[in-house]
């Protein structure tokens, strides 16, 4: 019950921060190549013991909400779905290397920083590649797409990790 309320609040607050703070940051010329994203943090920290199908549906809702505000016509929803589809496989892979201890959700507090950064970078690069591929909608511009993916992943990972330190509470043990 507590987890449900926390996640609903997180959903709303992350969307507000994305729209009112992060999207208002003007990056000048580099704005063409970097898109900053923090709302994906919701999918990264979604409780791990829930069904994967629920994760997909939540990703769809989250993405469509962003599309509605950003006027981007479904590309964020599609990219969120892709991220949600990748996450279970990545988790299984990470768990096989060294099992995740008994935690409800993955945040910077529950995992060590290096592991969490790897997890974020992998998922975000998938997310951005899909997003920019749909935005450009052509394979001939693959170099540009890759460059944008690289830059956006680096900066958004930084943003998400710093954001989690600032916004999320340290779980009491």
């Amino acid at each position: 019950m507590r987890l449900i309320i926390v996640n609903i609040l997180r959903f709303l607050i992350l969307i507000l921060i994305q729209l009112l703070v992060v999207d208002q940051v003007s990056l000048g010329f580099m704005g063409n190549y970097i898109s900053l994203v923090i709302y994906v943090s919701f999918l990264l920290t979604f409780p791990i013991n829930t069904s994967n199908y629920l994760l997909l549906i939540v990703a769809l809702i989250l993405g469509l909400t962003m599309d509605m505000f950003k006027d981007s016509g479904g590309i964020h929803a599609s990219a969120c779905l892709f991220l949600a589809y990748l996450r279970p496989f990545l988790l299984r892979r990470l768990q096989s290397q060294n099992p995740i201890e008994d935690v409800e959700e993955l945040t910077v507090y529950t995992e060590d920083l290096q592991k969490y950064t790897t997890y974020t970078v992998l998922l975000l690069s998938g997310f951005f590649f899909w997003l920019f591929l749909l935005e450009e909608f052509s394979f001939s511009r693959i170099p540009v797409i890759l460059l944008k993916t690289l830059l956006s992943t680096i900066f958004s990972t930084l943003l998400i990790i710093i954001g989690q330190y600032l916004l999320f509470r340290k779980p009491k043990i």
């Binding site: 997909l56 509605m68 016509g73 479904g74």
Partner: peptide, 27 residues
């Protein structure tokens, strides 16, 4: 399941290119 959801979204994307019909996902 993933593919089905993607198809739903793609319907929205295609509807967007069709000029006047993008009622739902529009600011």
């Amino acid at each position: 399941f993933f593919i089905v959801l993607q198809l739903i979204v793609f319907n929205v994307v295609v509807a967007k290119t069709d000029y006047q019909q993008s009622g739902i996902l529009n600011s």
